[in-house]
Simulated assay, not measured.
Amino acid sequence: MNRHTFAFAGALIASAALSACNATEDEPLPGEPGNAVEQVAPGAAPAITPAATPIPDASHAVPVDNPDAPSPTTGGDGSDLVLTPLTAADLSGITLAGELACSFSQSAGGPSLMLARGDVADAAGRASFAVKIGSYVEQGLALQDGGYDAMLDGGRFGTRGLTLTVRKVGAAARSGGESPPRTAELLAQRGDGAERVFAGFWTCGP
Rank of each mutant, 00 (worst) to 15 (best):
G10R: 10
K168W: 04
E99H: 12
R3I: 12
A16T: 08
R196D: 00
G158P: 07
S59P: 04
G93P: 00
L100D: 02
F8P: 07
I94T: 06
P30A: 12
A121D: 15
P111I: 08
L113H: 01
L113F: 14
Q106K: 12
P46D: 10
A150D: 01
V169M: 04
G200D: 00
S175F: 11
A45W: 07
Q39H: 13
G118N: 02
V197H: 00
G191E: 14
R167D: 04
G200M: 05
F201V: 07
F8S: 14
G161P: 01
A188R: 00
L100H: 06
E185V: 06
A116D: 01
P70E: 06
M151G: 00
A58V: 12
E27L: 15
A116N: 05
G177T: 07
G170D: 02
Q39R: 11
A69E: 08
G147S: 10
L162I: 13
L83R: 01
P50R: 08
V37D: 05
Q39W: 13
L113E: 01
T73S: 12
C102I: 09
T5E: 14
P111C: 10
R196C: 00
G146C: 07
D65R: 12
A97E: 14
A88F: 02
A130Q: 03
G76F: 04
A47Q: 08
G146V: 05
G176Q: 09
S128A: 15
